[in-house]
Computed example of a mutant assay.
Amino acid sequence: MKTVSSVVEDYIKSKPFLLTSLAQGIINLTSLARIMMPEIEAQIGKDLKQGAVVMALKRLSEELDFKINHKINKVLRNIGEITVRSSLNDYTFVVSDTILENKTRLLDEIKQRPDVFYTSSRGVNEANLVISDSVANLVEKHFKDEKLSHKLENLSSITVKLPIENITVPGVYYFIFQRLAWEGIVLNEVISTTNEFTIIVDDEYVDKAFKVIKDLKSV
């Protein structure tokens, strides 16, 4: 049997921006309850008093304040080095039997060049390569027989060092990417390791994205 609390929680969790605003205490609970009432009553199957929804929202907001704000803020305050690289290209190739071999050849040519930014990943159907524009000729050389499905130029990367606690606190990436979305920043790629993540953005967004991430340390 559905309860008012469970239905209210499901409603809020289905709306990410509303979820964080509720946790931050910047929403009028009475007004929100009034908007939610028709949907909540439809799911419960009976008429409800608005006060019951308000109380469910109040309990949820107190719980979220601890889960989202206190734990995540502790991680964000300890964000480490933020590194920016520019003049990058982003290539997406269709996966083939030769793609790994060609990546190996490319890596062999750039392994003695610390100035070159390089990262790659492979999915089920696509292989991705983000690399400095200065070696675009090498990509063309080694991947000339591969099927290029997408290419983006004039990109920048922002690499963020996270504290080790990030792997035990849920919602860290959600919180970061939500802030970037609020500022209208489009992410072309997201690359992560255990305690580090890199976002790839158009050059026009890099200054704004850097500021958003830097400001997270003082939330």
Results as ranks from 00 to 15, higher is better:
Ser156Met: 04
Asp115Trp: 08
His142Thr: 03
Tyr118Ala: 11
Asp90Ile: 03
Ser96Thr: 15
Val169Cys: 10
Ser134Lys: 13
Asp97Ala: 12
Thr194Asp: 12
Thr193Ile: 10
Gly184Pro: 06
Asp90Phe: 15
Gln112Met: 07
Ser121Glu: 01
Phe177Trp: 04
Leu152Arg: 11
Ser132Thr: 01
Lys111His: 11
Tyr91Pro: 02
Val95Phe: 02
Ser96Arg: 02
Asp90Pro: 03
Val130Phe: 04
Ser132His: 04
Thr194Gln: 14
Arg113Asn: 08
Val190Pro: 03
Asn128Met: 09
Ala136Lys: 15
Thr92Lys: 12
Leu162Val: 11
His150Thr: 05
Thr98His: 09
Ser157Trp: 00
Gln178Arg: 14
Lys147Pro: 00
Glu126Asp: 15
Leu106Ala: 10
Tyr118Cys: 11
Ile164Asn: 08
Arg179Met: 15
Ala127Asp: 06
Gln112Thr: 11
Thr98Trp: 03
Gln112Phe: 09
Thr168Ile: 12
Leu138Tyr: 15
Ser149Met: 13
Pro163Phe: 05
Leu106His: 13
Arg85Ile: 04
Thr104Cys: 07
Ile191Gln: 09
Lys151Trp: 09
Ile99Val: 15
Arg105Tyr: 14
Glu109Trp: 10
Glu196Ile: 05
Leu138Asn: 05
Val186Gly: 06
Val130Arg: 00
Ile79Tyr: 06
Asn128Gly: 10
Phe197His: 00
Trp182Val: 15
Val135Met: 10
Gln112Ile: 04
Phe177Met: 10
Gly80Leu: 12
Tyr91Ile: 03
Ser120Phe: 06
Leu162Ala: 07
Thr83Phe: 03
Ser134Phe: 03
Gly184Ser: 08
Val94Trp: 01
Ile99Asn: 04
Gln178Val: 03
Asn137Trp: 13
Lys147Asn: 11
Arg179Pro: 01
Thr193His: 07
Asp97Thr: 11
Val190Lys: 07
Thr104Gly: 04
Phe143Thr: 02
Val95Asp: 06
Ser132Gly: 15
Leu129Glu: 01
Thr168Asn: 08
Glu153Cys: 11
Phe175Lys: 10
Glu81Ser: 14
Glu109Ser: 15
Lys103Asp: 04
Thr104Ala: 14
Gln112Pro: 00
Asp97Lys: 14
Leu138Val: 11
Val186Glu: 06
Val190Gln: 05
Ser86Glu: 14
Ser132Ile: 00
Gly171Gln: 09
Thr92Leu: 07
Thr92Met: 06
Ile110Glu: 02
Val186Asn: 09
Gln178Tyr: 09
